[in-house]
Amino acid sequence: MQHAPFVAWLMQTGGVAHTSDARRAGYGTREIADAVLRGHALRIRRSWIAVRGADAATLTAVDVGGRLTCVSALAPLGMWVPPAAAADGRVHVSVAPNASRFAQAGLRAHWGAGPAPVAPRAVREHPLNVLAHVSECLELVDALAVWESAVNKGIVAPAVLRRVKWRSVRGRQLAEATSVLSDSGLETHACHALRALGLAVRQQVWIAGQPVDLLVGERLVVQLDGGHHLEKKQRRRDITHDSRLRLMGYTVFRFDYHQVLFDWAHVESVITTAVAQGLHA
Rank of each mutant, 00 (worst) to 15 (best):
R24V: 03
P127S: 06
D142S: 13
D55P: 00
L138C: 13
E218M: 13
A22Y: 10
E218P: 05
R90I: 04
E125D: 14
W9A: 09
A132V: 06
G26T: 03
L247P: 00
R236Y: 13
L261Q: 03
A56Y: 06
A113P: 15
W48S: 04
R246L: 02
Q104D: 11
V91I: 11
R101F: 08
R167L: 12
H126W: 05
H228Y: 06
A103H: 04
F6H: 10
S20Q: 14
H18E: 09
I49T: 11
Q277Y: 11
M248F: 06
R30L: 02
T19W: 05
A4K: 14
D88M: 00
T273M: 07
G227L: 09
L161F: 03
I49Y: 10
V160L: 15
R38Q: 13
L279I: 01
R254Y: 08
Q203S: 10
A86E: 09
D238Q: 02
V275M: 08
G249A: 00
F262R: 01
A200W: 07
H40G: 09
T69E: 05
L214W: 07
A150V: 04
A22K: 08
S72P: 00
I271D: 07
R38W: 13
A145I: 09
D213S: 09
W111V: 13
P120Y: 04
A4Q: 15
A54Y: 01
G14F: 04
V160C: 12
P211R: 08
A145R: 15
E31A: 15
I207K: 00
G217W: 11
M248N: 04
A87N: 06
S269A: 12
P211T: 06
W9Q: 12
I32H: 10
A145Q: 15
L199G: 02
H192I: 09
V180L: 03
A105D: 11
L220I: 11
D55W: 08
V134A: 01
K233N: 13
L181Y: 12
A25K: 00
V134I: 14
H40R: 12
C191T: 12
T60Q: 15
E148D: 15
W147R: 09
A22W: 07
V180Q: 09
H110M: 07
R219T: 00
L230N: 10
A33V: 13
G65L: 03
R219L: 00
D88Y: 01
A61Q: 00
W80K: 06
T188W: 08
M11Y: 02
G217C: 06
A75K: 15
P82Y: 03
A193H: 13
R90Y: 02
V118S: 09
A35E: 03
V212M: 06
D142T: 11
R121H: 14
G198V: 05
Q259C: 10
L199D: 00
P83K: 09
L194D: 08
C137Y: 08
V275L: 11
